[in-house]
Design a protein around this nucleic acid. Structure first.
Lengths: 152, 152
DNA sequence: TATATTTGCATCGTGAACGATATAAACAAA
DNA sequence: TTTGTTTATATCGTTCACGATGCAAATATA
């Protein structure tokens, strides 16, 4: 029993899970000041890069299911951050576009990336070491999204 | 506009968030076969290390709030995986203990760590590179939990 | 000892995540 | 053209996460 594979401290997933939660919490005071959640902020990141996208493209970009993104976007629509309209070419699609308020938020939140970025810096995480961390995380993401495509 | 700080691909948090979700999904078929969720599995990891702990100790170990852990534990109690009893020394505490079923699960799930572990291995993530990844993630967790203690 | 504060747990409300399922539009095949 | 399949989105139910708040037991302070 008590095999070391089961030790919590040996678990990669628990570390990712905890780091993700804590870093999301670091965004919280900055985002809630503008009435946003972190997943809503992610949707804004996608739309700031390219406005007027169908729900499916946003979901794919964030690697989320549409049944997660749809209600999320509806809440943002209720807040006047974006609007949804039926696609003209394809009537099944819902095209999501930023409102002026949604566009203004990019400027109002301009300090968020640097603020959160500096909050994680420490002996073990430096501007020099972050690219290596990105490679590892991208490897995990690529590997797991691959096996997901294989068993859809 | 479109400042590169806002590019989704530059975001550490998004990578952690995605890697965490995908890796949790990799546990799903293995755990749901035994009627468990990933956070419930984490509670089992804690109790397998040391049985009969108060809710607060479990929550601290997982870096979760008690208002997350309490309902989670209650669901596990309803499944007959563990039981709760009032602390004798401190009547405020609820001591959580494994049932025989909860103890048996350790053996039934013995292949889970290796199965999930092998699922993430790839060019960028090797047995040799994982310790370095642990250091970085522990750095992030340590840094963020520190600043959390400062502003309670 | 009486009162105030802290601590441990629980309840409530909101917003994700996601599996399962539904619905309508687009497209393919018969 | 009719039928079948795929695609895009939405709905529903369950389980986290977590901020806010409540309550009772323990502890500190007056």
């Amino acid at each position: 029993m008590a095999a070391e594979e089961f030790f919590l401290d040996n678990q990669l997933c628990f570390r990712l899970y905890t780091a993700s939660r804590l870093l999301t919490q670091a965004y919280h005071p900055l985002l809630s000041a503008k009435g946003l959640t972190y997943p809503q902020y992610l949707v804004l990141l996608v739309l700031w890069e390219k406005d007027a996208q169908p729900v499916n493209d946003i979901a794919k970009r964030l690697m989320l299911e549409t049944n997660t993104v749809t209600p999320l976007i509806k809440r943002m629509e209720a807040e006047g951050i974006l609007n949804r309209r039926k696609g003209e070419k394809d009537a099944r699609q819902m095209i999501v576009s930023l409102t002026p308020k949604g566009k203004r938020l990019q400027n109002e939140l301009r300090d968020v990336p640097a603020t959160v970025g500096s909050a994680v810096l420490c002996k073990e995480v430096t501007p020099e070491s972050v690219p290596g961390l990105f490679v590892a995380l991208d490897g995990i993401i690529g590997q797991l999204s691959k096996s997901k495509l294989a068993n859809p």
